[in-house]
Amino acid sequence: MGLVLVYPWSMADAGPMGQNRSRDWDADAASVTRFQAGHEDAFEALVRSREREVYRVALRMLGDPDDAMEASQETFIRVYRSLKDFRNDASFKTWVIGICMNVCRNMLSSTAGKMKRKRSPLARENREDGEEMEPALQDISPDPASMTLGSELRQALGRALHALSPEHREIIVLRDIQDLDYDQVGLLLNCPVGTVKSRLSRARQALREALEGIWP
C-alpha cells in the first residue's frame, strides 16, 4: 500500500469533461454537494450509484470475488475520506473508478506473489502434473444463466484478461469493459489520448494472443 494516490482530474478543469456530463453526473454531483454540505446520508446514494461499477472493475482487475469485495469496500472508504476535497467539476464516476484502480494496484503489488499463484488460470490449466486445480476464473461469473454458447468465449476472456500484464489489463477494463472514453482513460492513467490509443492497441494485441485459437 505504498503507492501514492494521484488524481489527475484534480488538475483538469471542466472543459474536457463538460461534454460528458449526463443525468448520472448531475445526480452524483448533487449528492456530492449535499455530502460536502454536511449531509452524510448523501453518501449512501453515491455508493448505490457506483458500487456495481466499482465491484466489476475490481473483479476484473483482481479476478477474485472476495478480493473484489474487499477492494470495493476499501474504495468507498477512501472515497468517504476524500470526498470533502473532491472538486465537483470532474466526473464522480471517473474519480471513483480511479480510486478503485489504485486500490487494485496496491492489492496486486502487495500480494503479487500470492495472487499470481492463485490467479494464473492459463498457467494452472497448462499444468500436467495432475494436482488438484484451483477454481478457474470462469467461476467468478456469478450468473449461471450466462453460461450459454457465448460463455465459452467469456471464460476464455476471463482467463486471457488475467494472463495480461496489469497495465494491459487495466486499460482494457477501463475502455472495453467500463466503456470509458479515451479522455477519461487518459485522465485515469495520467497520459494523453495518443498514448492511451497506442497502449490500448498493444493490450488488445496481447489479448488476442492470449485468446489464441478463439480470436484469429
Binding site: 458500487e51 456495481r52 466489476r56 450468473d143 472495453d176 485468446l211
Partner: peptide, 21 residues
C-alpha cells in the same frame, strides 16, 4: 470479444454488496 467484454461490465454483483460496503 468486445460484446463479451461489455457483458463483463454488466455482470450481476453479489448480494448484500451495498450492505457490506
Amino acid at each position: 470479444v468486445r460484446k463479451e467484454l461489455h457483458a463483463m461490465g454488466e455482470e450481476d454483483t453479489p448480494p448484500f454488496l451495498h450492505t457490506r460496503i
